[in-house]
């Protein structure tokens, strides 16, 4: 979903740049609470992994492809603020070194994929986790649901931005319907990849999954009580 230079007019690019800068500034402060000696290297790995994952375009039919956006995945693994920063770093590297996503569109891309992706993904993840059975096995399912919703939501935000500041004159309804439609299908791929990766990490190191904290940690105090009893 990388927006190139030229899709949006200057005021819109500046506005999304301001939103992105503000979001990243807040995230830089809030991420401190999510990062310690153990989770900081994990967060670096998550960013690198999302970069790799974004290179794998999977076909979704009619000569179209999609790839992992990773916002929900990163938010569940390392927390929403750190997750948003992970995706921002990925987008920065792509824009600076890979010519993927325009430099003037960096703010738009951070807004769509890092902020909307991570926070919508994490919000839906939390909601799903509140409804699902309280066990570790629910975490990958909830993460997949967060991923599923995050992609078409980011696509819808793109279409709304396009209505405001798109340089081409195309009917908003047409762009919105096409963007959300295709990204619903891409969202299914996002959900599958996100659930599988979260599941794999939980299998080997549940303590490194931010979104599994309350669930994975309940075992340890119980064991301690059993021992002392």
């Amino acid at each position: 979903m990388h927006v190139p230079d030229g899709f949006f007019d200057a005021p819109t690019s500046v506005a999304t740049g301001v939103v992105a800068a503000a979001g990243v500034a807040v995230a830089l402060r809030k991420a401190r609470a999510e990062l310690d000696d153990r989770t900081a290297p994990m967060a670096g790995l998550v960013a690198a992994f999302v970069f790799a994952g974004q290179m794998i375009n999977f076909p979704v039919g009619a000569g179209t492809s999609g790839h992992l956006l990773g916002g929900a995945l990163a938010a569940v693994l390392v927390g929403p603020w750190t997750g948003a920063l992970c995706i921002s770093v990925v987008l920065l590297v792509q824009a600076l070194f890979m010519a993927d996503g325009g430099l003037t569109a960096l703010g738009t891309n951070i807004t769509l994929m890092a902020l909307v992706g991570a926070f919508v993904g994490y919000g839906v993840f939390r909601l799903a986790l509140a409804v699902l059975p309280k066990r570790v096995g629910s975490v990958p399912v909830a993460a997949g649901l967060g991923a599923l919703v995050s992609v078409p939501t980011a696509a819808a935000v793109f279409a709304l931005l396009f209505a405001v500041g798109g340089t081409a004159d195309v009917a908003t309804g047409k762009v919105l319907a096409a963007m959300v439609g295709w990204h619903l299908v891409i969202g299914i791929g996002e959900a599958v990849v996100t659930a599988l990766v979260v599941s794999a990490v939980i299998t080997s190191r549940p303590d490194l999954v931010h979104g599994a904290r309350g669930l994975a940690a309940t075992r340890r105090p119980l064991l301690a009580e059993e021992v002392s009893a």
Partner: peptide
């Protein structure tokens, strides 16, 4: 081995007719 088809946004831009508004990526020297 990844799919080389255009991604969702690129496809929609093509289909609804705003792909031409994209500028060529700037050369960052990378």
């Amino acid at each position: 081995y990844a799919s080389s088809h255009p991604d969702g946004l690129e496809h929609v831009a093509q289909q609804t007719g705003f792909l031409d508004s994209a500028d060529d990526p700037k050369d960052t020297g990378s």
